[in-house]
Nucleic acid binder design. Structure first.
Lengths: 337, 337
DNA sequence: CTGAAAGCGCTTACAG
DNA sequence: CTGAAAGCGCTTACAG
């Protein structure tokens, strides 16, 4: 990259003059028109761009500490708002003097994120929805800044999780108490860590509670409303529909409910539904039917993340902090207690 | 703020030694334990934090250009994902070597955003959901970096808008063609620029098309599912429900639809609904009933924003660019053509 | 009107 | 084991 020095050399003027011109002070500092022109041309031919970092140093612009949330913009993009609002609210509540910034990344490519491998860009990274590969990258300690893992676990990092296992068990217990013997499951296809863990936990709980899950009743679906709808169609087509359905995400549940409504399968009379809830709680509340969810405590997790971030900034977080938040079951029409 | 120089002075060692210690190279560089300790203590007593900007300059870490999306985390947080995904996809499509970052702000307080008043932090700002005050701030040219206004208009800035006026007219035309004479409206309370403009445009269109809107049938609602639900309750309570309802946001429409379902008011037989659509198109598609929307072309607007950003980075955007994108009417069950 | 010089706060060879 | 010095790319008094 050309520097101001190169521009000065090409234009045949001093560095000071270049600085004045590129900062638009040519008139006010009474730089000769001709000189200013020479500078502009040199800038253009070299493709010169001022170095922001140098400018900031010189201008004593240190800025506030920056907390970066890393979040992938795949099908989980819809969960971002709730978490971001949670982070933001906690920053406000604590009157932290920090900037909160969202960086998007692609699963498995976290290692490409320069904000993580360079210790001077952000002060703290909250990393959400990491894939197995992303976790490997982190575990190999290639991240140069303090990391808070969001809903993932690595011993040597700060982590904030939702107690999905207990919640899956509780969801299964509800079905068991109601005497359901057969349960269907709609789960996200692919190997996202959290969803497969949630589904696995639910299946284990069913086994423990002596409920039967025919493998053909575990439908894998693309994580979208349409995916949920397609899964519901498959279940109906297969026939012999169980009276209980578990979904590992409310997005799938909403898509599925649409089809049950269309096919006049009454929820909850003919089919009771429970879903994990990752969207804002009001979303599932205002569906028709409203959907009973094990609501992931995103807000509490976000608050805790900021609490940890604050202690990192204060240098009081020596040992990794591992926080676990309890989801809340929100009983709605799709499965009343 | 204390500098490395202060730490060195207090610890009674050289700057180099301090640098080595604070960068965790004490062992490897065989710094005497005692020396390292003195440094650590000086760091602690002074509360020294290394200056990231200086580090970056020294480490020749210039980084990529940064495009910052400014978005408020109020009730409009739920619209963020769709726009962000749109921006991200276009960055990818163009293989731009830029960082995309989201900065949250509070309406009316855009002027506090240091990223805008300091020209060295971000290279380009895309500003969404600006309030009138925020626009004043921008118009007063206090922003030091190139700005792209998202769904707002100021002559001297790059702007990308949705043609809400034409769309509102088209929505009204649909009702008019179906012979509706009376129409109800649910609109967002408060003075958000876009929503009030949409509602106003719709009301104007109704007047032009000789449809009657009783002012008492224009219900102001908090922008949330609950707000939409409350508005629907008000409409029902008032009695003499029109057969056509317009909502300025799909969030309101979804909340309202829930109540109509509960009250067994058949959509569309007893009441036809059209809403502006700010959420992803699939959301309203999978509601029960699915909701006919004038879908704001967020994706196209995002693409255009990135196109403008690219030309700014290439210095080929001399004059302000003003782009207008056409919304698309998506016919769903709530109002078939 | 223009330029030489100082200095922002660091890191990194290099010398001892 | 430790320190003096150079220098990252700028901006800003200051001198002329």
């Amino acid at each position: 990259m050309p520097t101001i020095r190169d521009v000065a050399a090409l234009a045949g003027v001093s560095i000071s003059t270049v600085s004045i011109v590129i900062n638009g002070q040519a008139e006010e500092r009474q730089v000769a028109k001709e000189t200013a022109l020479k500078v502009s041309e040199a800038v253009k031919t070299l493709g010169y761009k001022p170095n922001n970092v140098a400018r900031r140093l010189r201008s004593a612009d240190e800025g506030k500490p920056v907390i970066a949330l890393y979040w992938p913009l795949d099908y989980r993009a819809s969960f971002l708002a709730r978490i971001l609002v949670g982070l933001q609210n906690e920053v406000k509540r604590r009157s932290l003097n920090v900037d909160l910034v969202v960086c998007t990344y692609t699963n498995d490519y976290l290692y490409k994120e320069i904000g993580l491998t360079n210790k001077n860009r952000y002060n703290i990274a909250i990393i959400g929805a990491a894939s197995a590969k992303d976790m490997d990258f982190l575990a190999s300690s290639k991240s140069k800044i303090p990391v808070i893992l969001f809903n993932r676990y690595l011993e040597s990092f700060h982590t904030v999780r939702s107690n999905d296992e207990a919640s899956a068990f509780e969801a299964a217990s509800i079905f068991a108490k109601k005497g359901h013997k057969r349960v269907a499951v709609i789960t996200t296809e692919g190997s996202a860590i959290a969803t497969s863990f949630r589904t696995q936990s639910f299946l284990n709980a069913c086994r423990e509670l002596k409920m039967d899950i025919d493998p053909s009743m575990v439908i894998k679906a693309e994580h979208s409303y349409e995916g949920g709808a397609n899964a519901a169609r498959k279940l109906i087509r297969r026939g012999n529909l169980p009276k209980a359905l578990f979904c590992d995400s409310d997005v799938l549940a909403i898509g599925a409910a649409k089809i049950f409504n269309q096919e006049k399968i009454n929820i909850p009379d003919e089919l009771e539904m429970i879903s994990f809830g990752l969207l804002g709680a009001d979303t599932t509340e205002y569906m028709t039917p409203s959907i009973t969810v094990v609501s992931i405590p995103s807000e509490e997790m976000a608050s805790e993340s900021i609490a940890i971030a604050e202690s990192i900034l204060n240098d009081t977080a020596k040992e990794p902090i591992h926080a676990v938040k309890e989801p809340q079951i929100l009983y709605r029409d799709s499965c009343r207690i």
